[in-house]
Design a protein around this nucleic acid. Structure first.
Lengths: 159, 159
DNA sequence: CCTAATTGCGCAATGG
DNA sequence: TCCATTGCGCAATTAG
C-alpha cells in the first residue's frame, strides 16, 4: 500500500518563510545574493498620541508582522537565536546532570546495600552466639572450654 | 551602501529559506495564499532507470537541491517532520523517565539508610549485652536478677 | 512596555 | 532508500 500521505501542512505560521536578508557582519562570502523579493511593509495604524498624556490601555494592537528587512528585526532575531541556543544548551546540560545523578545514586545504593549485608551478617553471628549461650544456661551446663567461635567476623563499628 | 549591516548569518544553510509552497489539499482554510514569489523550479536530471538491471554504484551523483515544489519533496519533508516529532517526543519522555528514576533512587536510598540505622542499633544492643556478660563471667559473678534491660529496642528480624 | 527564556515546529545535514 | 538524530532559525508564548 502506498502511503496516501496527506499534506497536512502542520503549522507553519503563515505558510511561508521568506528570504533572509543579510543583516550585518558578512561572515564569509559567496552568497547568491538573492535579489528582489520584498514584502511591502504595511504601515501601522498610527495610533497616536499627540494628546500628550497616556492612553491606549486596552489596545488590541497586533504586531505588524515585522519587517523582514528592518535592521531592528534582524537584531531581535539574532538575540533570540542566541537566547535559544543558550536555553537549549542548558536544557541538555541539565539532562546530562540528571543522568549522572542517576549513576551516582546507583552507586550509593550499592554501597548501602553492601553495608546492610555486612551488618546483617554480623547480627546473625551475634544472635547465634546468644542462642547457644541461652541453651547452655538452660541446660544448666557451664561451657568449660567450648569451641566457641569468638571470631570477629567483621570490624565492629561503634555506636 | 544601503545596508551597512553585515550578514552574520550564523549557519543558515544557505542564507535563505524560501517559500513554502502549499502542496495540495488545503487542510483547513484561511491561508494568506501569498501571491507571486516562487522559486523557479529547475527541472531535475532525468536520472532514470530504464535499463532494467541495476547500476550506478560509484556514481558521484550530487543531489539536485531538491525541487521545492516537487510532490516527492513535500512527501519526504512531511515524513521527516513526523520522524522529528517522534524523536523529540521520545527524547522528552526519556528525560522525564530519568528524572523519575532519580526520585525513585532517592527514596530507595532513604529506605536503605533507615535500615542501616536500625541494624546498627540492634548490633550495638547485642554487643553491649555481650560485654556485660563477659564482665560477669570474668568477675565470676552469677547475675541473679540483674536490672538488665532486656528490652527489645527493635523488632529483631529473622535471619 | 521591553527583553530574555521557553517551546513547538519545520528544514537540512548526517548517521545508521 | 528510509528513518532517526541533531543543529539551527523562526515565531508565539511565557516569565521577569
Amino acid at each position: 500500500m502506498s502511503r496516501p500521505s496527506q499534506p497536512k501542512l502542520t503549522a507553519d505560521h503563515n505558510g511561508v518563510s521568506v528570504i533572509q536578508s543579510q543583516a550585518h557582519a558578512s561572515s564569509s562570502s559567496s552568497l547568491p545574493a538573492v535579489a528582489g523579493l520584498q514584502q511591502v511593509p504595511q504601515l501601522v495604524p498610527a495610533n497616536s498620541s499627540s494628546t500628550g498624556g497616556k492612553a491606549l490601555p486596552p489596545s488590541k494592537m497586533k504586531k505588524p508582522p515585522a519587517d523582514k528587512d528592518s535592521e531592528e528585526y534582524r537584531q531581535r532575531r539574532e538575540r533570540n537565536n542566541l537566547a535559544v541556543k543558550k536555553s537549549r544548551m542548558r536544557s541538555k546540560q541539565k539532562a546530562m546532570d540528571t543522568q549522572q545523578r542517576v549513576n551516582e545514586l546507583k552507586e550509593e545504593n550499592e554501597r548501602l546495600e553492601a553495608k546492610i549485608k555486612l551488618l546483617s551478617k554480623e547480627l546473625s553471628v551475634l544472635k547465634d552466639l546468644f542462642l547457644e549461650h541461652a541453651h547452655n544456661l538452660a541446660d544448666n551446663v557451664q561451657p568449660p572450654a567450648g569451641p566457641e567461635d569468638t571470631t570477629d567476623s567483621a570490624g565492629v563499628p561503634q555506636l
